[in-house]
Amino acid sequence: MGTMSKVCLEDIRLAYQRIKLHVHRTPVITSQYFNEQSGRQLFFKAENLQKTGSFKARGACNCVLSIKERNPLVSGVVTHSSGNHGQATAYAARVAGLACTVVVPRGTSEVKADAIRSYGAELIYCEPTPLSRHETCAAVAAETRAAVVHPYDDYDTIAGQGTIALELLEQVPDLDAILVAVSGGGMISGIATAVNELRPECKVIAVEPDGKHLGPSLRAGRRLWLDPPRFISTLADGCTTQQCGRLTFPILCRLVEPTVLTVTDDQMAAATRRFWQRAKHVIEPSAGMVVAAALSDQLPAELRRVGVVLCGGNLDLDRLPWLSAGGAAPHALG
């Protein structure tokens, strides 16, 4: 499917059959406190409890296992990542019995580097730019004949991430909306594809860190970002990719609400901290960003039952986000 022109519900269902033995069916958690704070019913899909600590295990497993199905003699896989996708691809390669190389930018935290190595992958460092990541990854692929596992811009990856929505709509069938963090757009593309066919009246709403500016591009129907693309500075280190993918962006234009919810570092730090305190779940700032959006006045009042995808729980416990954000207090949620 990696070369096909689009992804559909059937692809997502096939992905689920392919990966279900290797990933968790994550629980949906509710909180009276957060319901009262938001004035609506919130249903948190706990992908922070997923294998490797984030939703990325779904897409990586589907992509790697699909590669092996198509080419049983493949020598291995290579990817580029600063964290969650690298861990997920290393895990998926181990499941498939393949060698794995992960290209990471210099300055990647040792906690993340160690986690990637713990799944058996080899690390190669590159310069901290999108171009260097792509070029280094391509060079490794050319030299070793390894297959590239793209973090988001691959239909197999997108289909794997879409399995989140299959589970969530079984667990809570009558949602009015689902809030999803957006970086390269793989997760929200997969979720929106499934939701569009299973519950078209449910709105899929993108949540972005301040500085991404996805909304104007969605409304224009074309990618308005700088070229070459750059990384943005945000506490949500899972969402630093400014430009959505060539494959993902058209899906967003077609299936995702044109109004994007934007969250500042202070808001996401405060929400992350409050979620730890009140829900007793360790989430990373990218997930805290979506919690902050669910509690904000940006969300239309008529949306009463809202799914909130907690995308991951990987973070450096020596660098807690509310300390990095200048000790953002809970009142910063806004």
Rank of each mutant, 00 (worst) to 15 (best):
G107L: 11
L73V: 14
V95Q: 08
D114C: 08
A96I: 12
G76D: 07
L73S: 14
R70S: 14
I116G: 05
Y91K: 10
G97K: 08
V104R: 04
L73K: 15
Q87A: 15
V95T: 06
V102W: 03
G83T: 12
C61H: 03
H85L: 09
V104P: 01
V95F: 07
A115N: 13
C63K: 10
V102S: 03
R94F: 00
T101R: 13
I67S: 00
V104A: 09
C61T: 09
T79Y: 01
V95R: 01
A115W: 12
S75L: 07
L73Q: 14
T79G: 02
L73N: 14
A60E: 05
R106T: 11
K68I: 01
I116R: 06
I116H: 05
V77C: 06
Q87R: 15
R70Q: 15
V78F: 02
Y91G: 06
V74W: 05
V104Y: 05
N71D: 12
T101Y: 09
A92Y: 03
G107A: 13
N84C: 11
P105T: 08
K68E: 03
H85V: 06
R106I: 09
L98I: 03
A115D: 07
I67W: 00
V104N: 03
S82C: 13
T101A: 13
E69P: 00
R117T: 07
Q87W: 02
R117E: 08
L65G: 05
G59A: 07
P105H: 12
V77S: 02
K68C: 03
C63W: 01
R117Q: 14
C100M: 09
S81H: 07
G59M: 01
A99P: 08
S118P: 11
A96D: 10
R70L: 14
N84I: 13
V102R: 05
A90F: 04
G59R: 06
Y91H: 10
N62H: 12
H80L: 12
P72K: 03
V95C: 07
V111E: 12
R58E: 12
V77D: 01
G76W: 04
S81K: 09
R117Y: 09
V77E: 00
G107K: 12
T101E: 13
A113F: 04
E69I: 00
L98M: 06
V102G: 07
V111Q: 13
G107R: 10
V111T: 13
S82I: 05
V104H: 01
E69G: 02
I116L: 09
A60P: 04
V103Y: 00
Y91E: 05
E110L: 15
H80F: 15
S118A: 15
G76P: 11
P72A: 06
A115H: 10
V111A: 14
A90P: 09
T108W: 09
P105A: 13
N62K: 07
S82N: 12
S82W: 12
L98Q: 02
D114W: 03
A93T: 07
V74N: 00
C100H: 01
C100A: 15
T108A: 05
P105Q: 10
I116E: 07
